[in-house]
């Protein structure tokens, strides 16, 4: 009896404060994940039906509108550069010595056979700008105390209408994310691991994306050497720098 009343009490308190708390949680998540600018090296491992492939690249980005990526390996991709400004994307490849603009419809295609589309990669808006959050409950995940929050889109032009997020209650970093269709169908699952503390924030350095409708082992995205608030020369974000 005592247990039950405690539970009811907890539920009442939770629901009263949840929306405010949830927004607070989301704000803290944003504070960890989004940044004015960042530089990082990353490794993408794509699991295909015939084995896996790893691509390494270095990226520079400012805010949510500009980013520049250079591929470092494998040999085939080496020297390939990508420039994103607002909603436009250009690719330069040394083999063709061409700057090619990737237009709207291509952005929805998957990047190099991964479970990510260009659009997924280009979505850099703050979560608080897109979603309203509410707390669903608390749980343990990978021995960490987590909040489970639901995110419901508050704007129209968003890829995933709802998300369910497992946020580390202490560090405010998402550890797991489920992306849903409007109908409630689970579309993608992202698992974040290897959380590090860098430049005053907690950041996941391993993310595993899995398209839940498709068979396969998903795509692994590993970040190494991430730095925030670095001086990035403005001329990097120009088409001229693609050819350099």
């Amino acid at each position: 009896m005592k247990k039950i009343s405690v539970f009811i009490l907890a539920a009442i308190i939770l629901s009263a404060f949840s929306n405010q708390d949830a927004s607070e949680i989301l704000r803290k998540v944003d504070a960890n994940l989004s940044s004015e600018n960042r530089v990082f090296e990353s490794t993408i491992t794509i699991h295909g039906r015939r084995g896996s492939r790893t691509i390494t690249s270095k990226s520079w980005s400012v805010g949510d509108t500009k980013s520049f990526t250079e591929y470092l390996s494998p040999a085939r991709e080496q020297g390939t550069k990508m420039l994103k400004l607002e909603n436009q994307l250009w690719i330069y490849t040394p083999t063709t010595d061409r700057i090619i603009q990737i237009s709207g419809h291509m952005l929805r295609q998957s990047v190099m056979g991964s479970d990510l589309s260009y659009e997924d990669m280009m979505e850099d808006r703050k979560l608080t700008e897109i979603y309203n959050a509410s707390i669903l409950g608390r749980d343990m995940l990978d021995n960490r105390d987590v909040y489970i929050i639901t995110l419901l889109a508050k704007v129209e032009d968003v890829a995933y209408h709802t998300q369910k997020m497992w946020v580390d209650a202490d560090r405010f970093v998402p550890l797991k994310q489920e992306l849903f269709a409007k109908s409630g169908q689970l579309l993608k699952r992202v698992e974040m691991k290897d959380i590090i503390y860098v430049d005053g924030r907690w950041f996941p350095t391993t993310m595993v994306y899995k398209d839940m409708l498709k068979q396969g082992d998903g795509t692994e995205f590993k970040i190494s050497g991430i730095r925030f608030n670095q001086p990035i020369p403005e001329h990097l974000f120009s088409k001229a720098s693609l050819k350099q």
Binding site: I46, G48, R50, R53, I55, R76, E77, T80, I91, T93, T95, T96, D97, R98, I100, M112, G113, S114
Partner: peptide
């Protein structure tokens, strides 16, 4: 002309 597609390993393919 430049062809953009994907390789059999699902990497981006570019060829003139």
């Amino acid at each position: 002309i430049t062809f953009i597609g994907s390789t059999m390993n699902n990497a981006m393919a570019y060829h003139n």
